[in-house]
């Protein structure tokens, strides 16, 4: 257990300013809070063994969840940058032991006005019969310039379940590359969900790759990306149906608003077994007119209505 009081106060001030819920701090929710390369708080969660090392530009984390661990409350982590810094790198390795059932709630927080390149590499192993939900939500300031590169590589064991959610909640997305990859074993399930909005000259690139290697394994890759102003957005979803009776589905929907956006969606479906089935739906379009008109008929302005619709899609 360790707390760096002054660092905690700075993090609280800067991160709540960009929208992080205040009660995370007042109710002491963080099991691990990192400001760039400094461990600010660290409290162990039951059944979760972890080792965190400060590096010159970030942290290296190793987490082992003991077999059979079942937690009601999510393990809450924050990797942030509260002040001026050029580079932050995080490397994590998470092993979820057999039969465990846990959820990680991860906050990315980049303080208002900073300019930062952030790379995050995460390796995840979800062992047999385990269930692991990894929710990664990002808060930036409206004037934060982030160049974010995240790479997640997961192995989903027999009859295991892994869900990864990546969401941009507040502020500018910046330049973002999200790369999610999973190999799924027999009867395992993987769900990838990405929800982002790009504004001004933001550039978003999301790549989901799922290998359904085990019999009866299942994969879902879902993305909702909204591009306004001059933003660029690209989604690539690849699902490989390599085993008997595996099932995969890619569902991507991109909304464009403004005539200068550039949006691309590429679903790739490869099947190597005649009993495998992988489907996809991809849609790029403007906001549904009827949705817009319905809300306007209830008295919302067009901009308010767009906001409600977009926030709903990003939820």
């Amino acid at each position: 257990m360790a707390i760096a009081k002054n660092l905690l106060n700075i993090a609280k001030k800067e991160f709540t300013k960009i929208g992080l819920p205040e009660e995370l701090f007042t109710k002491n929710k963080f099991n691990l809070l990192v400001d760039r390369n400094k461990i600010v708080t660290k409290y162990p969660a039951p059944g979760v063994r972890s080792e965190v090392i400060e590096t010159p530009t970030g942290v290296k984390t190793k987490v082992y969840i003991e077999p059979g661990t079942k937690l009601e409350e999510p393990v809450t982590l924050c990797f942030g940058a509260a002040g001026r810094t050029d580079l932050q790198t995080t490397e994590s390795e998470i092993i979820v032991g057999e039969g465990a059932d846990v959820k990680f709630q991860v906050y990315g927080a980049m303080a208002e006005g900073i300019k930062l390149k952030h790379t995050a590499k995460t390796k995840i192993v979800v062992e047999k019969n385990a269930k692991f939900v990894f929710i990664d939500v990002h808060y930036n300031g409206e004037n934060t310039l982030v160049d974010l590169e995240t790479e997640t590589d997961a192995y989903v064991g027999e009859n295991a379940y892994f869900k990864s959610v990546f969401k941009q909640i507040k502020g500018r997305a910046g330049k973002v590359r999200v790369n999610l990859k999973a190999r799924v074993d027999r009867k395992g399930v993987v769900v990838f969900e990405t929800k982002m909005i790009g504004k001004k000259d933001d550039e978003i690139k999301v790549e989901d790759i799922i290998y359904l290697d085990g019999e009866e394994s299942r994969g879902i890759s879902k993305s909702r990306i909204i591009a306004v102003d001059q933003a660029k957005a690209e989604f690539i979803g690849e699902t490989y149906g390599n085993a008997p009776r595996c099932r995969g589905h890619i569902d991507c929907s991109e909304i464009i608003r403004g005539k200068d956006v550039v949006v691309k969606a590429v679903p790739v479906v490869v099947v190597r077994d005649e009993t495998a089935k992988v489907t996809h739906e991809a849609a790029i379009g403007s906001i549904d007119k009827k949705q817009l008109e319905t809300l306007m008929a209830r008295g919302l302005t067009e901009d308010e209505a767009v906001d409600v619709i977009v926030q709903g899609m990003l939820r």
Binding site: R224, D288, K290, Q291, E293, T294, A297, R298, G299, V308, I309, Q311, G312, M313, L314, R315
Partner: peptide, 15 residues
């Protein structure tokens, strides 16, 4: 003070 309820109402994701 005017509003309209459509014959086929729209559906909304996430609301």
């Amino acid at each position: 003070g005017i509003t309209l309820a459509w014959q086929e109402p729209a559906r909304f994701e996430g609301i």
